[in-house]
């Protein structure tokens, strides 16, 4: 039989390798920017990363102390570390509040955004009608609404959750819609040739095709949600990391203030890493 030898003869072009693959989709981030190719595995790399961190932090410490920069302008890393340690119990509680608002608002916004994106893109007519309002939601500063929401819902979780949902939902929606709008007639015809129903086409073709953009939307939505949660906490109410930021800064407790800032940055990085991993698992076929 010819085929066995054929298999050996036909060259395998590793088409996924080159950098000519970034042809589809609008990826706003380079997934691997943070993680490196498959993580920093090499011992030398890890050593270098630690070394740079030590030099940076040590340098900042030395510089701030050497120049006698007052603590209320910029506390040295050691003071922030001490504040982190001594006030952790106290900050921790507020972190939990922020996480509750973020996750509740985000889940709400993301689910609605996803469903809307999926439905709207199936009906171009509806899409035309709804598009201006979505754009309005995206460009509207949600934080400006928070005082209003507080008037209506009080100083509890509600106004913040609503603000987070309103900030993250449209981001999830607009990116997912971009994904769902990618139509590949040949792939849809393929599914139809097997007798696929409209719903099966949606499930087996449209969703996987939209997935990379959905992941991007989910990530941007989560980061916008975090920013909005903190901002809303700064506007009003007596708890949450944002609230701590205003209190610490008004009391000129700068080490504590920067400890909270560090936690927030860490949360942002965590969101990024989570979606990087999700993207790698579910949407790597196009990258």
């Amino acid at each position: 039989m010819v085929d066995k030898q054929l298999a050996d003869k036909i060259p395998t072009f590793e088409r996924g390798r080159g950098n000519g693959q970034a042809d589809q989709g609008v990826s706003i981030t380079n997934w691997s920017a943070l993680m490196g190719r498959g993580g920093a595995r090499q011992f030398g790399e890890i050593l270098a990363i630690i070394l740079v961190a030590v030099v940076m932090i040590g340098g900042a410490e030395g510089l701030l102390r050497g120049l006698n920069v007052p603590q209320y302008v910029m506390p040295p890393p050691s003071a922030i570390a001490v504040a982190f340690y001594t006030d952790f119990q106290f900050i921790w509680e507020h972190l939990l509040h922020t996480l509750v608002e973020l996750s509740a608002g985000y889940v709400l916004g993301a689910v609605i955004g996803l469903i809307l994106a999926a439905v709207i893109t199936q009906f171009p007519f509806i899409e035309k009608i709804v598009a201006p309002y979505i754009l309005m939601l995206i460009t509207m500063p949600m934080l400006a609404l928070v005082p209003l929401l507080i008037l209506r819902f009080g100083f509890g979780y509600e106004p913040r959750i609503i603000a987070v949902a309103l900030a993250s939902g449209p981001m999830v929606m607009i990116n997912s819609a971009t994904g769902f709008r990618r139509v590949d007639l040949a792939k849809i015809a393929l599914a139809r040739s097997f007798g696929a129903s409209t719903f099966q086409i949606f499930l087996k073709i449209r969703v996987p095709m939209a997935l990379p953009m959905i992941v991007v939307g989910l990530m941007i939505g989560a980061i916008f949600g975090l920013l909005t949660a903190v901002g809303a906490e700064m506007v009003g109410g007596g708890f949450g990391l944002g609230n701590r930021l205003t209190t610490f800064s008004s009391m000129i407790q700068m080490p504590q203030f920067f400890a909270v800032i560090l936690i927030l940055s860490f949360l942002g990085i965590l969101i990024y890493v989570i979606f990087f991993l999700i993207g790698k698992k579910w949407a790597s076929w196009q990258a």
Partner: peptide, 22 residues
């Protein structure tokens, strides 16, 4: 189809399984 028309997010085994899933 012209140009294979495989689903890029599925490996070969799962591409071949597509008609049966549908």
């Amino acid at each position: 189809f012209q140009e294979a028309n495989l689903l890029p997010w599925r490996n070969l085994a799962r591409n071949i399984r597509l008609p049966f899933e549908i």
